[in-house]
Nucleic acid binder design. Structure first.
Length: 870
RNA sequence: GGGGAUGUAGCUCAGUUGGCUAGAGCGCUUGGCUGGCAGCCAAGAGGUCGUCGGUUCGAGCCCGAUCUUCUCCA
């Protein structure tokens, strides 16, 4: 059974059980400080389980793209070594939000596996929660009884809290779960060892394929459990493993989920899968990682050096490294796989098809840059090896190579072992550990427990309509970090404060206590759908009702920038073409930043056209049309861009200014006329195929023009109010250049003359040509003069004194052959004579300078110079 | 967010405890030689040594601030 069909049958099956089939949510998460990537099928539905939002559909099923790079079995460095762990994978799931429970979940799971997928039921094992005394939890008899209808008792296994009790986090919804395992070993092996003993034992052919979670409790902050008012079902089935079972393969990588990629890698790298363990691992690593990277980029997450982008970069670099080391690829090649991947999965995940060009470009650029890093590292490593005595390279050096120059440690180890050398790994680990503790210490954030003042399920955002409100604090907590000190996070029963999101910064403002005391809100953020206000201090009496006020000026300027960024988006698509897509944005009160896909530097004409386009929309004074809580389809019908960054949700908000329609939760001006004026201040590249525009609006443009006019008028004034300052400046520059050359020539002439004069003053003492003079020249000219004279006169001993700004300087030049023959040292001369001008100095043996603060001493010094000739 | 590195000619980079009149290779210009795969020889142009400030007789080098790029960690 082809993998596409496996996926389709799952969805069809649950559709027939009245489930709404929803598309996969993005793999890359935005606006969730606790998580960077979707790492399980339930993540997009977290809010429903936490009771912060009510689901429209009570039954939902989907396949969700997930990414795991750390965890018990998903350490990035382990993926590829076995045949059944992945970074990116699909998780099939069905959900009940307060609807059906254990019976249906179990019945349907069995029906699907045995009747639809036709899995031999004798290969299936199930596990049931055995209970836990410390939590007062009993054996899950209900699940056991339900399973017993289908499964003989000897294949029902009891599981402990670790394996069979699922918790969302330290607090929150939780409940017992039931896992389904499948044994795909040969009959022979089954006869030898019972499958039962291999369940949950990391056997590659006895694997868990489906986990059914029955959420019925809430774990409170004090650790106790309470029954949830509504019970939920959350299930997750590993798609790749399911395919392995249904296609009778022994490895996920042998299914048609991976074989097209593996064939392509074999073709490109001229290698063969299945012949050699090292090659196989490398091919698996690349096949796995390219999926993770391609999906992430298609979701809008580009590789970068921080946060989620850094995780993506690390994954891609690991793939490059394996190719480099084991498949001998010295040129970029992984980017070529984007085509195969989009052909194979693009039908169900259209983002892969649409973003194929971007994915290709970005991966290729990353490959090039990392291969450069590797090249540089190889040279550095060579240097280290040459400077190493004995055969062990210090861990410190290896760490420096890794830390500062990004050269992978395993490559270092490999190259050393090829040369019969070793690496002090303990020292390396110590250095790495030091770095980690340093980073952690800097980022340490101590978070106190929430103090709950009142229960309020619905915490409304009222900031679209008002900037002020009388509110109560429902909960608060203290957060301490080294950087920011103590901050208090406050949650209100309702709030006019806009939390950071959709690229727009969080609102600032203040909160007023009864006695008139004001506490400033410095930022507003969202965490798990909770709007959190950051305050520097806590009100004296947190239970009173407060007046809270949003900073109107900041808010208005931010709104101008946000609306302008929508118009900018429209303008770019109009002028550059529809390949332009938003890749990120940042909207502040002072400026806006807009990242978008485009493959060339924008010309001055294009920039001007974009500015004109936006400004003409501003002049048209288009009124805002805002649609709240409309179904996503209605918004799309209005012409809103379907962004893949959107996750399945009940309703959306759409913002329309004329023909610009976008799904957006941000704050906007009532009329484009409010923006006043739009000005692009910079355009540049941030990654392959991605460009960034920075722009300003409203007051900022006023300041911008005022400042520029100011500079311009000053320039014009300096140029005597010429009509054409640009030409005047170019003329000046040319004139300046030619004058410089003339001056240089004149100086040479002058020096020649001076040399002529000086040559006549040279005395000959003991075969040495000696000259001591006081001149009125700067230090550089003296140097030039000295070397010039030195070239003309053999055996020269020159001593020059000068005086500038009340300071005295001495310079001494001694021909090199004299230095050697007579053991003379200009440095010594200058140091000793320097005492006469109350200073010191030094230099080389043939030329040295000294400076002092007693110009009267110069004459004496020049006279004394003769003494060195004896 | 924290640490490390980096910035010198159009490009790739040297520059040792401050003593330098800032270099090399490639590229460029000019002239000459030359039937051979990066032709050879000679001459030459090209530098605010990231920016600002400091220490010093003297700073590419040391100190402080700041920006760029790279990199590791969170």
């Amino acid at each position: 059974m082809k993998s596409q069909l496996v996926r389709q049958q799952f969805l069809d099956f649950f559709a027939s059980k009245k489930h709404a089939i929803v598309p996969s949510s993005p793999m890359v998460l935005k606006n969730d400080p606790t998580l960077m990537f979707t790492n399980a099928g339930m993540v997009p539905f977290k809010e429903y389980f936490l009771g912060q939002k009510t689901a429209v559909d009570k039954r939902v099923a989907d396949t969700q793209k997930c990414l795991r790079v750390s965890g018990k079995h998903n350490d990035l460095e382990e993926v590829g070594k076995d045949t059944y762990h992945h970074t990116m994978f699909e998780m099939l799931g069905n959900w009940s939000f307060g609807d059906y429970f254990k019976k249906e979940a179990i019945d349907w799971a069995w029906e699907l596996l045995v009747e639809v997928y036709k899995i031999d039921k004798d290969c299936l094992y199930v596990s049931v929660f055995e209970g836990a005394e410390d939590d007062g939890l009993e054996y899950d008899q209900e699940a056991y009884d339900l399973w017993k209808k289908y499964v003989p008792e000897d294949r029902i296994i009891n599981g402990n809290k670790k394996d069979n009790f699922w918790e969302m986090g330290a607090q929150g919804p939780c409940g017992p779960c039931s896992e389904i395992h499948v044994d795909i070993r040969s009959a022979e092996e089954k006869a030898k060892v019972s499958g039962r003993s291999l369940v949950n034992n990391d056997h590659p052919q006895v694997v868990e394929i489906w986990n059914l979670v029955f959420m019925e409790f809430n774990r409170k902050a004090d650790g106790t459990l309470e029954k949830l008012p509504a019970k939920h079902v959350d299930t997750g089935m590993g798609f790749e493993r399911l395919c392995m079972v249904l296609q009778n393969k022994q490895s996920n990588y042998d299914t048609d989920v991976f074989t097209p990629l593996i064939r392509e890698i074999e073709a490109i790298t001229n290698s063969e899968y299945g012949k050699n363990e090292e090659t196989d691992i490398a091919i698996r690593v690349i096949a796995d990682h390219v999926r993770a990277v391609a999906f992430a980029i298609a979701d809008g997450q580009l590789p970068s050096n921080t946060g989620a982008g850094y995780v993506i970069r690390r994954i891609l670099r690991r793939a490059i490294r394996y190719g480099f080391t084991f498949l001998n690829t010295k040129e970029p090649f992984i980017y070529k796989l984007a085509t195969t991947l989009s052909q194979q999965m693009g039908d169900y995940f259209p983002e892969l098809k649409i973003q194929k060009q971007l994915v290709t470009n970005v991966i290729k650029e990353e490959e090039n840059s990392f291969l450069r890093t590797l090249d540089q590292g190889l040279v550095l490593l060579d240097g280290i090896i040459k400077n190493t005595e004995g055969t062990e390279v210090s861990g410190k050096k290896a760490f420096e190579l890794f830390d500062t120059f990004g050269f992978p440690i395993d490559l270092t180890a490999l190259i050393l072992s090829e040369k019969g050398m070793t690496l002090d790994e303990d020292e390396f680990k110590k250095e790495l550990e030091k770095q980690k503790t340093r980073s952690r210490a800097a980022a340490v954030v101590e978070t106190d427990d929430w103090v709950i003042l009142q229960e309020d399920a619905e915490k409304e955002f009222i900031g679209y309509d008002t900037l002020e409100a009388n509110v109560n604090i429902t909960q608060y907590r203290k957060v301490s970090s080294k950087k920011e000190g103590d901050l208090y996070q406050l949650v209100f029963n309702m709030t006019p404060f806009y939390p950071e999101g959709g690229g727009q910064v969080g609102d600032k403002g203040y909160l007023k206590e009864d006695d008139g005391n004001v506490i400033y809100i410095v930022d507003t953020k969202k965490e798990n759908n909770l709007i959190i206000h950051f305050a520097k201090s806590l009100p004296k009496n947190p239970t009173q009702t407060f007046k809270v006020v949003v900073d109107e000026k900041e808010r208005f300027r931010t709104a101008c920038n946000h609306s302008a960024s929508h118009l900018l988006h429209q303008a770019l698509r109009e002028i550059l073409g529809t390949h332009v897509e938003q890749k990120g944005s940042a909207v502040h009160s002072k400026s806006l930043r807009f990242d978008f896909s485009h493959f060339a530097k924008m010309t001055a004409d294009e920039l001007r056209a974009v500015e004109d386009f936006v400004n003409s929309r501003i002049e048209d004074k288009i009124s805002l049309e805002e649609y709240r809580n409309i179904p996503i389809k209605t918004a799309l019908d209005k012409g809103a861009m379907a962004l893949f960054g959107e996750k399945y949700g009940d309703t959306v908000r759409a913002i329309q200014f004329g023909k610009s329609v976008e799904l957006c939760g941000g704050i906007h001006v009532q009329n484009t006329g409010d923006i006043w004026h739009f000005k692009i201040v910079s355009e540049g590249a941030i990654a392959a195929g991605v460009r960034r525009i920075e722009a300003i609006t409203n007051n900022a443009t006023k300041d911008f023009f005022l400042e520029n006019t100011q500079v311009f008028s000053e320039v014009a004034e300096v140029l005597k109010n010429t009509k054409n300052p640009v030409k005047a400046i170019i003329d000046l520059q040319e004139e300046n250049a030619s004058l410089k050359k003339q001056v240089e020539a004149l100086q040479k002439d002058k020096a020649k003359n001076l040399t002529g004069d000086l040559i006549n003053q040279v005395e000959t003492i003991n075969g040495i040509h000696y000259l001591a003079v006081k001149l009125d020249l700067d230090q550089n000219s003296i140097k030039d003069l000295a070397f010039d004279l030195g070239n003309k006169i053999e055996n020269l001993f020159l001593l020059v004194g000068t005086e500038t700004d009340g300071k005295a300087f001495l310079s001494c030049y001694i021909a090199k052959n004299l230095v050697e023959a007579k053991q003379l040292d200009a440095g010594k001369v200058v140091r000793e004579l320097g005492k006469l001008i109350e200073g010191g100095g030094g230099g080389q043996a043939y030329f040295a300078t000294a400076g002092g603060k007693k110009p009267e001493g110069i004459e004496e010094a020049l006279v004394k110079g003769k003494e060195y000739l004896k």
